Simulated assay, not measured.
Amino acid sequence: MAAAVDVNPPLEDEKQISTQPPSLSLSTGLAVRLACRSNTLTTVTSGLAPTHLQANLIILPSRYAADFRLLCARNPVPCPLIAESSTAGSYTCIKSCNNGLSDAQILSDVDIRRDAPRYMVYRDSQLAKKDCLDICSEWTDDHVAFLIGCSYSFESALKEAGLEDRHTKLGRNVPMYRTNVPLCPAGVFTGGTYVVSMRPYKASEIERVREITRGYSETHGEPIAWGWDAVARLGIGDIDAPDWGEVSLTLTKDGRFLGDMVGSEEEVPVFWGCGVTPQEAVMRAGIEGTVMAHSPGHMLLLDVRDHDIIQS
């Protein structure tokens, strides 16, 4: 099995940041945003502000905005589009892409450049900076931010049903993997594939997990695959070596590697579409200019609540 190694080694110009555990007092999306804005919160956001939606971020030069909207429309499971900048260059106002939600319901009092715990910066489709505390120096009047649904948003419902994930309890980052599942192309965005997040459950729990998450189509919905045979079908070479997230969370409760449990019904991998998919699509597309995004697991917290988007 794979050794526990850092799958995202730091870049030379990366800012040094703390890894303090998340504060239990951050009970609203606004409270989390303000903590990020003041650099007092730099951790992953799983478990913060329960029932408040969390969003992935991708920020593009405006000339790619129409193609990206089309990419989301054609691939709603990994790229569920919730909102975008009200105008090019706006980092304080968003417009809803959900007919049932107003702009104000989704998000207010925001600075998209500073209100996620950490950010990534790409230049000409290559990662240039990682885990930045803000992107103020990179933002221009030509940038458009897109808010993509995140599976962290249904974790409150899973917890309420007694199905809380280990990463949520620990305040850690869920494991994420590149797959061989192709995205439907859109404009410049060609050749992309799904990224998936993984949470292990008992085989007896999976149908209940599917049932609970099915209504959260704005935040990836139910799993796209589950079971030990799904690992190979998705093109994941080693379940114990995620491309992003915590290697330690591929360990079982008793400290064994998850890969050692192949065939077990006590630890079964379950996979969801993941909002890191747009970042991979940008890398594959080879687009020019500066693109920004959240660091995987470090989401933008919204004002809208999970009960506002759940579908029966």
Rank of each mutant, 00 (worst) to 15 (best):
M176T: 04
M176S: 02
Y177L: 09
Y177K: 07
T179M: 03
V181E: 03
V181T: 09
P182V: 03
L183N: 00
L183K: 00
L183Y: 03
C184D: 14
C184V: 14
C184E: 15
C184I: 15
P185S: 06
P185A: 04
G187K: 04
T190Q: 15
G191K: 12
G191N: 12
G192Y: 07
G192E: 08
G192V: 03
G192D: 05
T193Y: 13
Y194A: 11
V195D: 01
V195E: 03
V196W: 04
S197C: 12
S197R: 02
S197T: 07
S197Q: 06
M198S: 06
M198Y: 04
M198A: 08
M198P: 01
R199Y: 10
R199Q: 06
R199I: 07
P200S: 14
P200H: 13
Y201Q: 02
Y201W: 12
K202C: 11
K202L: 09
S204G: 12
S204E: 15
E205P: 01
I206R: 08
I206G: 05
I206C: 09
I206N: 07
R208I: 03
R208A: 08
R208D: 04
R208H: 07
R208F: 04
R208C: 03
V209P: 00
V209E: 00
V209F: 01
V209G: 01
R210I: 00
R210V: 01
R210W: 00
E211K: 10
E211I: 05
R214M: 11
R214L: 11
G215F: 07
G215W: 06
G215Q: 08
Y216Q: 01
S217Q: 12
S217I: 11
E218P: 06
E218C: 11
H220C: 04
E222N: 06
E222P: 02
E222D: 10
E222G: 04
E222K: 02
E222Q: 13
P223Q: 04
I224K: 07
I224W: 03
G227E: 04
G227V: 03
G227N: 02
G227Y: 02
W228I: 07
W228E: 04
W228V: 05
